[in-house]
Simulated assay, not measured.
Amino acid sequence: MKSIYAMLFVFIACLSITNPGRVEAAIGVNYGLLGDNLPTPADGVKLLTSRNITKVRLFSPNQNILNALKDSGISAIVGTLNEDLQTLASDVATAKRWVQTNILPFSSSVNITCISAGNEVIPGDLATYVPAAMQNLDAALTAAKLSIPVSTAISMGVLSQSDPPSNGLFSPESSPVLTQVAKFLQSKRSPLLVNIYPYFPRNSFPANVPLDFALFQDTAKPNPDGALLYTNLFDAMVDAVHAALEKAGGPDVEIVAAETGWPTAEGGPDASVANAAIYNNNLIRHVSSGAGTPRRPRKDVDAYIFALFNENLKSAGVEQHWGLFYPNMTEVYHVDF
């Protein structure tokens, strides 16, 4: 039987901060807006506050959401639109205008913890713009006297090897760009944002990826990597990226799990409310424990659950069933924040 790591490698091959002041890992949510029946931003922020959710990730600098977040105590990762990467990479003046329009008006009342230059564009046609966009945004933030890290968000599809995690390696298509990204993040002591979904390798290879290993359950059989033992797939995926970063010139770059979660319907037999509740509650306990990962013990990994709401304008099928809440703000299932 092939190992779990081998199955993970096959799967990802097929897929098209450091913050010195941080004292413990934290859980947030992705606040997506691809729905025509979502609550108002003000009501959405009230929901976040009522459930003790203190961190959100925004895929764009949506000013309605940012206005609603003012003085709420909720921090935010703010992304650029993918289609803006080319212009942001063109010169610092463009990046300065972006910061002045989208960040500066909110910086005194919203704790913006990171700017993400695009989401999952590496590898691809837009990938070559990412390093320059990151550098220009960093220069623009510095000019505005704002101390906000700049990063980018990647999928696990950037890896060509992950079996075992210590063999993690960026693919030939991704490596030229991610080597630049890794060295930039290393120099700035900023994190890499990684979208980590144990559901996908489990769904693709159920015979080889045990469900309990994907769901952080105590019954999971540990998987060895030299002297290290992995008791869950999330840690194995995180550490595969750590290993790739080390080889690309970013040995000290930390990882933020910018997206992770489990679907509740239309994604095969494992996409269920029960499994989603198990995954996300176990994720919170694991991340909050301070254990880190086998490769980086006691190094916090912040994680952002995908997503706050079910979004009906996403592609039909499983994509519409990742929310913690229905658009009417009732729970799909309970998560203890």
Rank of each mutant, 00 (worst) to 15 (best):
S72V: 08
T264S: 15
A274E: 15
S155L: 10
D212R: 09
V332D: 10
G79I: 04
H242S: 08
V318Q: 14
K314Q: 13
V78C: 03
A153W: 02
P206M: 03
D138L: 02
S3R: 10
M237V: 00
D300T: 14
C14D: 14
S60D: 13
S116Y: 03
L185M: 02
L192Q: 11
V194D: 00
S171T: 07
A76E: 03
L38S: 03
N167S: 15
L233K: 01
M1C: 09
V177T: 14
N281L: 07
P131C: 07
N19Y: 09
G249K: 08
L58G: 06
P164T: 05
G118Y: 03
A132Y: 05
P206N: 04
M237W: 00
V301C: 08
N19M: 02
R97I: 11
N111M: 04
H242N: 09
D125L: 14
N82W: 01
E319A: 13
D239V: 02
W262K: 04
T152K: 02
K55C: 09
A144H: 14
N62T: 07
K96P: 01
K2P: 15
I278H: 06
G268F: 14
G292E: 12
P20F: 03
K55L: 12
F106C: 02
I278S: 13
V23E: 15
D270E: 11
P164F: 07
L141V: 09
N223I: 14
F325V: 00
A13Y: 12
A95M: 09
N282E: 06
D84M: 06
V181W: 01
N328R: 02
A248F: 03
E331K: 13
C114P: 00
V130T: 14
K314T: 13
P61D: 00
V256R: 03
N328Y: 10
A258V: 12
Q320R: 12
I103Q: 01
S60A: 15
P172M: 00
S155D: 13
A140N: 03
T330H: 11
L34A: 11
T54S: 15
A291S: 15
V10E: 14
L69D: 07
A127S: 08
S171D: 10
A248N: 05
K145E: 10
A207V: 03
S174T: 07
M7W: 13
A316S: 13
G124D: 01
E259T: 08
G290R: 08
L85W: 01
V99E: 04
M1P: 12
L47K: 10
N328T: 09
L88A: 01
L58A: 11
D218H: 05
A144K: 10
P222Q: 06
C114M: 15
G290P: 12
P164Q: 09
V256C: 06
Q161S: 11
S289W: 07
F213D: 00
E266V: 07
A207H: 10
S16G: 13
V318L: 09
S272I: 12
P251H: 07
L104M: 13
S162G: 14
A153F: 04
A244W: 03
A258L: 05
A95C: 08
S90V: 00
E311P: 02
N275K: 09
L169C: 07
P297F: 04
A76N: 06
